[in-house]
């Protein structure tokens, strides 16, 4: 983000104020926003000064999702006592996504669609559009049996017998991706126990489902037969 200062301050002063904003901060969503305007807490992981010329400060901010950067720049200006506002903003990473070879431009997409529709060549489109599973690739994972998939698709919670394997980085409260043995995203959920605890259990619900991704009917409804 580029922050424009309304009056120059020393680099030391700037760094000092940045450090005050690292940690938990309060923010009220701006007037024109799409969420409820009540004060909320957001965590700022770091504010690194990359370049400074007395007027513009180029900074890299690591923060929790839902932090208003324009507000942050404004508040930094208030604490500096000189006023400041955000001049430019660029998101350099979010979830697993970075500015890497997967980052594409609108033109790339438009040309890939042309190649698919007009030339019948879908290879370009496949390079640009990534499987949805990539979007949850940074999360801890639980791989489930075929027989557990459709129950979750119908809204059931995940119980221990449905699990084939899990990553050992799951802690209580983790957001976890639930995948089939083929690697398809089934759902996202909140782990109710740590990986070690889950491993030592032989029954019981271990994940509270937050979002179901897969549609019902793709895998057989083993749970229906059990009931009958």
């Amino acid at each position: 983000m580029v922050v424009q200062l309304h009056q120059p301050v020393s680099e030391n002063k700037l760094r000092e104020v940045f450090s005050k904003f690292v940690g938990e901060i309060y923010q009220r969503p701006p007037l024109r926003s799409s969420v409820k305007r009540t004060i909320r807490i957001r965590r700022i992981h770091y504010i690194d000064l990359i370049e400074y010329n007395g007027k513009y400060a180029l900074v890299r901010v690591g923060c929790q999702a839902g932090t208003y950067m324009r507000k942050l720049a404004h508040d930094i200006g208030l604490i500096l006592g000189v006023g400041a506002h955000m001049r430019e903003l660029r998101r350099t990473r979010t979830g697993p996504f970075k500015e890497d070879e997967t980052l594409v431009k609108m033109q790339d997409l438009s040309e890939a669609i042309y190649m698919w529709r007009e030339e019948g060549d879908e290879r370009y489109l496949r390079r640009i559009i990534l499987p949805v599973e990539v979007a949850v690739s940074h999360l801890p994972k639980i791989v489930i049996r075929d027989t557990a998939v459709d129950a979750i698709a119908h809204g059931a919670s995940l119980a221990v017998p449905g699990i084939t394997r899990l990553t050992n980085n799951i802690v209580k409260g983790s957001l976890v991706a639930i995948l089939t043995l083929k690697g398809e995203l089934v759902a996202l959920g909140e782990a109710l126990y740590s990986a070690d605890q889950i491993t030592s259990m032989n029954k019981g619900i271990v994940v509270k489902i937050k979002r179901v991704y897969i549609e019902p009917g793709i895998y057989p409804a083993a749970w229906r037969k059990c009931k009958q």
């Binding site: 697993p96 499987p131 949805v132 599973e133 990539v134 949850v136 690739s137 940074h138 999360l139 801890p140 994972k141 049996r145 075929d146 998939v149 221990v160 699990i163 084939t164 394997r165 899990l166 990553t167 050992n168 980085n169 089939t180 043995l181 083929k182 690697g183 398809e184 995203l185 990986a195 491993t199 793709i218 895998y219 057989p220």
Partner: peptide
């Protein structure tokens, strides 16, 4: 591959290793 892309370097805990998946249902994401 997903774990590598997402920077997850956790180890797997395998609870049921003999479980296979039926090719008649679902599809490999790619």
């Amino acid at each position: 591959k997903l774990n590598r892309y997402g920077g997850v370097d956790a180890e797997w805990i395998v609870l049921r290793d003999n479980e296979e998946t039926d090719p008649r249902y679902g599809v490999l994401p790619y």
